[in-house]
Design a protein around this nucleic acid. Structure first.
Lengths: 135, 135
DNA sequence: CTAAATGATACCACTTTAGTATCATTATGT
DNA sequence: ACATAATGATACTAAAGTGGTATCATTTAG
């Protein structure tokens, strides 16, 4: 029962780190130095976030990454979608298989309800809220 | 983000099927005939539930499985524990890795809260509640 | 022009998932 | 006693997902 995978976790750490810096463009070098994330893996992760529009990238000397929007407008759910796909937890069970028994639908109803709660929670956690010292 | 694996799903179906039968001892043969679950896989699943105390088994001709307690006292969470281990979703991230930044702990707090909700929901869904036609 | 940065791909080891296959053991009915 | 119908135990396997590594190409500041 894994809610968040390692790349999502690393991505969130990187986002928080970038969000906290004054100088907004941050290079992989600095991120690796301070976060102790394996360099090539982190690079791949940042590139994906760039492609997905969560980060903006600058090539060449002095380049790096910056947030594409305010930290308060980036949510854990956004990051998860990039690295873990659509936020569904039950599809693999109820796809095209015949669902002839009532109990199947009963279970589906309950699990869908749980999923709704999870997703709405994940959509409420912003990067901004994670870097506030006060709480 | 997979909440429930296939063996858990099959296990729940089997439990519901057994719970609905008048004659309490049900053989794999009948389960396979009606539920269309691969036979050897289902056998393994039932054996695990037997070992874990959710089912009682009877060997030999005319044998099979029956619930070890009332359907209302068996919960989806019980089944998941057997096939998916302890109901934790965040441990792999926060284990022995240094957690020196505030944000790590901030995230942990939020994810732990979500986990608490999930687990309490899963503990509230009984097999009994799944086989009620009325709802 | 060179060094420092990202972009794009391809590859790889390990674990989990979703099974299959086989043989041993037990109990029932004749 | 014995054949048959059931479960018990165990080992194996194919495919997908996870967590990375390795290489080379491209861009840009100074």
């Amino acid at each position: 029962m894994k809610l968040v995978t390692r790349d999502t976790d690393y991505a969130i750490r990187a986002l928080c780190y970038i969000a906290k810096r004054k100088k907004s463009i941050v290079s992989v070098k600095k991120l690796v130095r301070d976060l102790k994330i394996p360099r090539p893996f982190l690079r791949k992760i940042l590139q994906r976030m760039n492609k997905s529009g969560l980060l903006k990238s600058y090539k060449g000397k002095g380049g790096g990454f910056e947030l594409s929007r305010a930290a308060g407008a980036i949510f854990v759910a956004d990051v998860m979608k990039i690295f873990q796909g659509p936020l569904k937890c039950n599809e693999h069970i109820f796809k095209k298989s015949l669902c002839p028994h009532i109990r199947t639908c009963a279970l589906k109803g309950k699990l869908d309800m749980i999923q709704k709660h999870i997703v709405s929670d994940l959509k409420s956690i912003s990067i901004g809220s994670l870097i506030k010292k006060g709480k």
